Simulated scan of single mutants.
Amino acid sequence: MNRPQREAAVRRIMEQAAVPVPPGLHAEAVRRGERLLRRRLLAHRLLWLLLCAAAVAFTVWAVRTQPWVEPPSQTTPPLTGW
């Protein structure tokens, strides 16, 4: 199909009578869109809350256990009396 044929096909489609839209379609689409936006916003807020809670939990764990400090040796007794 070359360009003039495509343009003619588009003109035929655009000249046809418009299909009637059901009366409640717009209201239903708006309702569904608002619901999807609310769900997306709630999901984003929950994910941010989970991320913040994980960061706080990691910080508390790190402060209490101090993983950067070398643990004391328990395999040999301390040397005293030299």
Rank of each mutant, 00 (worst) to 15 (best):
P71T: 00
R11E: 10
A27Y: 06
E28V: 10
L50V: 06
Q74V: 06
A62Q: 12
R31I: 06
R12V: 10
E15Y: 04
R35L: 14
P78G: 08
A53T: 11
P71E: 03
E15N: 14
W48L: 14
W61Q: 01
P20W: 03
R32T: 12
R6G: 00
A9C: 06
Q16K: 12
W68A: 03
P22W: 03
P71R: 00
H44D: 13
V63C: 11
P23M: 01
R31T: 05
V63N: 10
G33T: 07
A62L: 12
A17G: 08
L51Q: 10
T75W: 08
P78Q: 09
Q5H: 06
A55S: 13
H26A: 14
V69A: 08
L49Q: 03
A27H: 10
E7Q: 14
A9I: 07
R64A: 15
A29W: 02
T59F: 14
A53Q: 07
V30S: 00
V56F: 03
G33I: 03
R40I: 06
P77E: 00
T75Q: 09
Q16V: 06
L41T: 11
L49I: 09
Q66Y: 02
W48I: 14
R6Q: 10
M14G: 10
E34F: 11
H44M: 15
V10R: 15
R64C: 04
W61T: 11
